[in-house]
Design a protein around this nucleic acid. Structure first.
Length: 1109
RNA sequence: GCCCGGGUGGUGGAAUUGGUAGACACGCAGGACUUAAAAUCCUGUGGCUAGUAAUAGUCGUGCGGGUUCAAUUCCCGCCCCGGGUACCA
């Protein structure tokens, strides 16, 4: 009855699972005098496939840590929940018509059932599900906090938008310029800010918000009808499904994670993640330090001539039919003259426009292109014309000018002389309101409007300012703004053709031919600011628009790509590193001494960098610059099954919903098809989207990362109705002490969780700014696929040996099936085609230790019923391959099967025994018997035959030594996450106690406690049998006592010339001199030394003695 | 290509402030028990050479060098495997 048999195990494990639940022993209190410990698993996405044996690996480890810490006296938080929003459930709904809410709930139940059987000690009362409105209410709430924040670069932290508004009102944005350098909005003064209308103010604030809406290049996946995050795109195709992905501009929510790049990077230094994990994050953030500098363009670079834009006439006294630079000074003079000859009406108006009287800087008689405007506000791109007689007579000229100005983004408003004279106030009001309604613009390039051509400059980022004298050409990204402007007429065609080619290439093409060298010459030349040398400007795909400034200075002798480009297009190569450049390939060394480099000559590159940067700064054309590879995080998904954005659009401006209106629940729907035009499935619910005539909702939902970015905080106080978690709970539980999960979440999840934590910290909600103190990545468990081999053309299946050695088949076949079979079946094949095989995967459930159960395979695959099996040693041995666990490979092992056969305790121990936790390994049940046998032997220590029998006799010193050695080793191992070695230690201990025939309570009782984190069911059962009524998990960890391990003597290995020859037992407290004497006089040693005196004697107390002869 | 991690018996793996390489387990072989099988228990088990044997010798932690009384561990060069990243200037 009391044997550790299959039936008994099932009884014990079932009993304790229900009992633990009934007693509520896993319930965790937020109010405890004990020190806290927070052990967290990455919560699973509840997929329909259920768990395979790979999933619990990390959960078992965390469960061991949690239980161990508990019996060590900590108040341990060890929760579990589900990352329940996400694409697969939605795809499943599209394919099977089952609502995501339904399939998700089913899958969660199945997961919980499977997890329950393994005996995890989760406090299920703290369970969270990200798709639960009670949960995502707070996801939305945190999103709104992020929306309501900006990153203050002075204090390097997130602050409230209200504070930013206060700053704007006081001093404009001079000390806090727009974070995105590509933004068109210019700096503004306090008065300007106040004068902006609501919409303009909101547009400006949007440029600062940490969660913002903007037109961004997104990865658009047509097949999935959605936008994907960068990390969801692999090699130009979607990570799920492998569909093509293209770049597309869409109005999307993004998180301004780039503002946190530096803190995310430096934070890595204070957290305990594996080196490879940190490295992945560092690469993703991609910080590089260098310089940003400008290259002026040389010579004339025409912009479109107005002659092409409209008609003109010789009789027009104010019109110049060219924009060439040489005419600029004439235009300028002309406008000067005009100013002196203002009409009366213009003068009247000017008195009220000048000196920022309306709150805007207005210029009069200002040259724009080849035209002159009466009044212009350059920041707002507004032209104000007062039409006198002259205009009435020159309509053609005015039309041409208006067209040109509109093309350049100007709005033109006109007043008649009459209006200005009679109704000045109304004119002024109209001017003011028009100005306020227009966004402030930073002119994309100053030249064609103000300075004429020639003022164009190409801004580049480089990490190697020291190589500036080695520049032989410049390269712009094909998408670069300047490309059109600088291309010379002679090169128009080449450039246009190249741009066409670039456009025709899909992401996949590009990925496939990354190193292909292509490009076109623009005809323009830039000037090296140091040498004055003219350098040709090219465009090429290898320069990415999205990184740095989208333009590079090419130094072919030091950069491989530049070098290949130069060779391919036959461009000259300047050598600045002397013999280190061999003319064949670039040398990217930083150690060379510079040559051909003017004032940098003779400097070592690393030192020259600063010298060059200083010079750039001195000349005012460049400065030190830090660049990041990381982009802002796209936060919109065109999906149904996610958190709706808690905002309301009024006049196209998004406003945060009130906290009292949260959660904004996902509206019920059965239409999950994306609308296809970039809107999500929610756009199909027009009543919901346009819920009032003036108010609109967002049709997108948040990515699955949103719910996962903060769930570890919700566990601390999961039922809180008034806050995402109570402040006291957040303070008490604080950081996650140990976080266990897969390394595949290195960039997305972990970065977003770290980001949200930092923002919540900055805003004062939590007092830590890194969520996870320590991260452990459990290795992947791969599947071992079993393979059998069929001989092509015959109904014959051969064992692995014959697949490896086909020459053995003939003889063996004759032996096993007789010559008749051979002659009629195999022989014809051998004679015509020779022996060739099919390799086929076979369900691993009918294979045991590589031996195929032949009767079962015939049941499973009736097609094989007439096949003959050529065996080796009477067995069919399968081949095998290590692959990921997948249903289609027939290699999935479900933990339920293992538990059925051996019990949960064996499964737990075995998964730990498999090897180091962080190492990936193929699943194999070879060896599981050893673990099972250990548990039975452990059980047997407490039993005599079928009866529980434990003696109260006092333990011997030897027995105590075994116990304390185990207590110490297991404790150390758990702290080091080396669970495989603690299982070994248990085995050693059990073996030793078995041979000592020890069944003493004083030894076995503490031992049961030490084992309990690993094998909770058996430990609890034995604990009860020992007479305890309270759970073993409320018992304390046995105290380790050093004295039992103290030895008086040590069995010294005596090595002679490095080889161990003799063992000698010597007292540990013996002085070195005495040891030496003892060893040298020992007969067994003199046998080796032949009586000669050793050259040297090395004695390491407690370790070794080495004699050098 | 670059960055990170790793390479130890037939297998999973153990041992690193440099100090007996191969713990523990699987597998395999032999034995005990049994009518038999399963289960259980005991013994052996890195390779090679010699020996009936006990045993002795010798090689051995991816490869080649080096430092050291002593190297799986430290240093230099190379090979292979796994992961990350990919025209990031």
């Amino acid at each position: 009855m009391a044997e550790y048999s299959k039936e008994e195990i099932k009884k014990i494990e079932d009993k304790w699972r229900t009992e633990w639940q009934k007693r509520g022993i896993y319930k965790v209190s937020n109010d405890s005098p004990k020190p806290k410990y927070y052990v967290l698993d990455m919560f699973p996405y509840p997929s329909g496939a259920g768990l395979h044996v790979g999933h619990p690996l990390g959960y078992i480890a965390s469960d061991i840590v949690a239980r161990f810490k508990r019996i060590k006296g900590f108040n341990v938080l060890h929760p579990m929940g589900f990352d329940a929003f996400g694409l697969p459930a939605e795809q499943y709904a599209l394919e099977h018509g089952i609502h995501p809410a339904v399939s998700t709930a089913d899958n969660i139940n199945n997961f919980k059932r499977q997890l329950g059987k393994i005996g995890f000690g989760y406090d299920w009362s703290r369970e969270v599900q990200t798709c639960d409105p009670e949960y995502y209410k707070w996801t939305q709430w945190i999103f709104l906090q992020i929306f309501d924040s900006w990153f203050n670069r002075k204090t390097e932290k997130a602050e409230r938008i209200a504070d930013l508004i206060k700053i704007f009102e006081k001093e404009g944005n001079a000390s806090h310029p727009i974070p995105n350098s590509k933004s068109n909005i210019k700096n503004f003064a306090a008065a300007e800010w106040k004068a902006f209308n609501e919409k303009t103010q909101q547009e400006i604030l949007m440029q600062y918000r940490l969660a913002y809406l903007a037109n961004t290049d997104v990865n658009w996946c047509e097949a999935l009808g959605t936008v994907l995050a960068n990390d969801e795109v692999i090699n130009g195709v979607s990570y799920r499904g492998g569909f093509p992905v293209i770049k597309k501009q869409m109005r999307q929510w993004s998180l301004r994670i780039t503002e946190y790049a530096d803190r995310l990077l430096s934070g890595l230094d204070v957290i305990d993640f594996s080196e490879s994990m940190k490295e992945i994050q560092r690469n993703w953030i991609g910080k590089s330090i260098g310089a940003e500098l400008e290259f002026r363009l040389a010579g004339l670079t025409p912009s479109p001539s107005p002659g092409e834009r409209g008609t003109s006439s010789e009789s027009n006294p104010k019109g110049f039919q060219t924009s060439e630079k040489k005419y600029w000074h004439i235009l300028k003079k002309f406008s000067k003259d005009n100013r002196k000859n203002q009409t009366e009406e213009e003068d009247i108006l000017w008195q009220d426009l000048r000196n920022n009287k309306l709150g805007f800087k207005i210029r009069r008689q200002h040259a724009l292109g080849t035209f002159i405007a009466d009044f212009v506000c350059l920041d707002k791109r507004l032209v104000i014309e007062v039409d006198g007689e002259y205009h009435l007579n020159n309509k053609e000229y005015d039309d041409a000018r208006t067209e040109f100005l509109n093309d350049e983004g100007f709005e033109v408003i006109r007043f008649t002389n009459e209006e200005v004279k009679s109704n000045l106030q109304e004119v002024l009001n109209k001017i003011k309101s028009t100005l306020e309604a227009r966004p402030s613009l930073q002119r994309p390039s100053p030249s064609p409007l103000e300075g004429g051509a020639g003022d164009e400059a190409i801004k580049v980022f480089t990490t190697r300012p020291d190589t500036i004298f080695g520049i032989d050409f410049m390269v712009l990204a094909p998408e670069h703004d300047l490309v059109k402007k600088i291309t010379t007429p002679a090169q128009q065609e080449d450039v246009a053709n190249y741009l066409k080619y670039v456009e025709s290439r899909s992401e996949v093409d590009r990925m496939a031919e990354v190193k292909k060298i292509t490009g076109a010459f623009t005809g323009a030349y830039a000037i090296n600011p140091f040498s004055g040398r003219q350098i040709p400007v090219w465009i090429s795909e290898y320069v990415l628009a999205g990184y740095g400034t989208g333009a590079i200075m090419a130094v072919p002798c030091g950069d491989e790509r530049d070098h290949k480009f130069a060779k391919h297009f036959n461009l000259p190569i300047t050598n600045i590193i002397g013999t280190l450049y061999n003319g064949e390939e670039a040398n990217s060394t930083k150690e060379a001494t510079l040559e051909n480099s003017d004032f940098l000559n003779g400097l070592v590159m690393t030192a020259a960098m600063d010298v060059a940067i200083n010079k750039l700064e001195e000349m005012g054309i460049g400065k030190k610059h830090v660049n990041f590879k990381m982009r802002d995080a796209g936060w919109s998904r065109q999906r149904y099954w996610g958190e709706p954005f808690p905002v309301v659009f009024k006049d196209d401006v998004p406003y945060a919903m009130n906290e009292s209106e949260l959660p904004l629940e996902l509206p019920p729907s059965n239409n999950f098809k994306p609308s296809g035009n970039g809107e999500g499935p929610l756009a199909n619910l027009t009543d919901w989207i346009n819920f009032t005539p003036e108010q609109k909702r967002d049709s997108n939902t948040m990515p699955t990362h949103a719910g996962a970015a903060w769930y570890f905080l919700r566990y601390m106080d999961p039922h809180n109705k008034t806050a995402f978690a109570d402040k006291k709970a957040l303070e008490y539980w604080n950081q996650v002490d140990v976080y266990i999960g897969g390394s595949e979440h290195a960039v997305a999840h972990l970065l977003y969780a770290r980001l949200w934590t930092k923002i919540l910290h900055d805003l004062g909600y939590i007092n830590f700014d890194e969520p996870f103190k320590k991260l452990i990545n459990q290795g992947k468990i791969t599947g071992v696929t079993s393979i059998f081999y069929t001989v092509k053309g015959v109904d014959l299946i051969v064992s692995k040996k014959f697949y490896d050695n086909p020459e053995l088949i003939i003889e063996e076949c004759k032996k096993q099936f007789g010559p008749e079979y051979f002659n009629s079946n195999l022989k014809p094949i051998i004679e015509t085609e020779g022996i060739d095989f099919y390799e086929r995967r076979i369900d691993i459930s009918i294979v045991e230790n590589d031996i195929l159960k032949i009767d079962k395979i015939k049941e499973k695959r009736p097609a094989l019923i007439n096949f003959k099996f050529l065996l080796e040693d009477g067995k069919y041995i399968c081949g095998s391959a290590v692959e990921k666990m997948s249903k289609s490979y027939f290699n999935v092992v479900n933990p339920d099967e293992i538990i059925d056969k051996y019990g949960a305790d064996t499964l737990r121990l075995y998964e730990m025994f498999l090897g180091p936790l962080e190492q990936s390994k193929p699943w194999s049940t070879q060896g599981i018997d050893g673990v099972f046998k250990f548990l039975r032997r452990f059980w047997n220590l407490f039993h005599s035959g079928e009866n529980f029998r434990v003696s109260d006799e006092a333990p011997t010193r030897e027995e105590l030594k075994v116990l304390h050695k185990t207590i110490k080793k297991v404790e150390q191992d758990i702290e080091n996450f080396s669970f495989n070695t603690s299982v070994s230690e248990f085995m050693i201990c059990c073996n030793e106690l078995s041979s000592l025939k020890c069944n003493k309570r004083a030894i076995l009782e503490p031992l049961a406690i030490v084992l309990s984190p690993f094998a909770p069911h058996i430990a609890e059962e034995l604990w009860e049998k020992l007479g305890h009524t309270d759970s073993i998990f409320n018992a304390g960890y046995p105290a380790f006592d050093e004295q039992y391990l103290k030895e008086n003597s040590f069995e010294y290995p005596i090595s002679i010339n490095g080889k161990v020859r003799v063992m000698m037992n010597i007292a540990l407290d013996m002085p070195k001199e005495d040891i030496e004497k003892l060893v040298l006089e020992s007969e067994s040693v003199t046998k080796w030394t032949e009586g000669k005196a050793p050259k040297k004697v090395i004695i390491v107390p407690g370790k070794i003695v080495n004699l050098v002869m």
